[in-house]
Design a protein around this nucleic acid. Structure first.
Lengths: 245, 245
DNA sequence: TACTACATCTCGCAT
DNA sequence: ATGCGAGGTGTAGTA
């Protein structure tokens, strides 16, 4: 495809609020939160109707360059090839794409009012623990979940049989050192806010890393193995289906 | 585009290690680390030669669904429309795309051996501090940077004029509570490993949040304002260029 | 492979 | 707007 042809189509796509995708050989420079340069190669480029720009290499799931929605986009001719310049005032960054060869191009107005519905988040996990406190221990009496205001962002907290406060930090995956320091912060915060000497801390996660477990021991906290909800639900079913053959 | 036509093209694209992109109306289900459902709407779909799948809605910079490289991909006909099934054994997850309408389609073999060159990471920031210790204080004598082995993942550490150890944690952005607990972990680790009573901790970042600053004070650490390197470098130049008009 | 921390992280929610 | 923490986080570096 000729550069002039591409520029005309791309401008039309932008002005009619369409989304476009094209494959091209290009060179890219980014400046803003960092400085980046990507030498010439074949890329997949998407420009959406909200002026989001995504540049993908032929492998991998992460864009090699991008600009977020609300950026300005200019498309010009420079030395007989197309040149895309994008600025984002909010994020103070800019992207420049020098296009040496356009392999193909598609553009279309897209309609999509749907939002993804997701189950199995950490919130769902803390809800599960709140509703099934025996997952932690038979003595645990939950008081509240997802306290985002008074005591910080504590996932679940409650009492043990002695009436002592228990703070639970949930993680959907292997808990690392960060999870333990997070728990430690919350426990200390509650201690100081309520003037208590004894507040228990529990990490609820499927696994915990060795270093994290050592830190947990050092601070007198406990680990309880809990599997997050909704994990693999449909996957397992379809695997069962496959195994029927 | 007819469903049969799409299926044929897509299969050919997969078998010849091409990358493809198309716009379509579709419905998507994901199962694995969570359960997700996305009702029918217009989407942009990319399938790369490494079997990475990306599904984008018309707005926003993040894919609404995806499968990582190395997944299996099957494309079939179901009730007269195309159906894409993808499984990833490693991540134990699966994606199903039911395609009701294909708006367009491009496919191409792409060649790209280039890697992005990026400057301005946290590593670059710790290097800058190591090379310019006066950014921290006129008394700071750096000893090592990026110690990933003996004492943990410490960005920079060194001595003050009294010969006491100083640990520096760099952050490219506003330092929050996490940065302080991270620093605290490193300082305590060094204290215990070396049997020292006095080890200083410093957060080097452009800003620090109020909560983080309070925690820092509580633990006797210090904050030093340091701007990350390479930020806005070319951006500023081009803005200057713009302002010339 | 598991562990650890960075990321042009992005996103949502509360203050 | 900023602060704060989750994410189907992803990715790189290392033991």
């Amino acid at each position: 495809m000729q550069s002039d042809d591409f520029i005309q189509k791309a401008k039309k796509s932008l002005s009619s609020n369409e989304c476009m995708a094209f494959f091209c050989s290009c060179e890219i420079k980014y400046s803003g939160r960092a400085e980046a340069h990507l030498p010439t190669g074949d890329r997949i480029i998407i420009i959406k109707s909200d002026n989001t720009i995504l540049v993908h290499q032929p492998n991998g799931s992460v864009p090699v360059n991008y600009m977020k929605e609300g950026s300005s986009i200019e498309i010009d001719n420079k030395d007989n090839h197309a040149f895309i310049k994008s600025y984002n005032q909010k994020h103070k960054d800019s992207l420049q794409i020098e296009i040496y060869l356009i392999h193909n191009f598609i553009s279309q107005r897209l309609e999509d009012g749907q939002k993804i519905h997701l189950e199995g988040s950490e919130k769902d996990m803390s809800d599960m623990i709140y509703d099934n406190p025996s997952l932690i221990s038979k003595d645990f009496k939950p008081l509240a979940r997802e306290e985002h205001t008074k005591y910080g962002f504590i996932d679940v907290f409650g009492y043990n049989k002695k009436g002592e406060l228990v703070v639970i930090e949930c993680k959907r995956y292997t808990a690392g050192p960060d999870a333990v320091t997070q728990l430690r912060r919350y426990v200390e915060k509650i201690k100081s806010l309520r003037g208590l000497k004894t507040v228990h801390g529990i990490i609820a996660a499927p696994k915990i890393s060795p270093n994290a477990l050592k830190m947990l021991d050092d601070w007198g906290f406990k680990f309880v193995s809990v599997n997050p909800p909704k994990r693999l639900e449909t996957y397992k079913k379809s695997q069962m289906g496959l195994n029927d053959f």
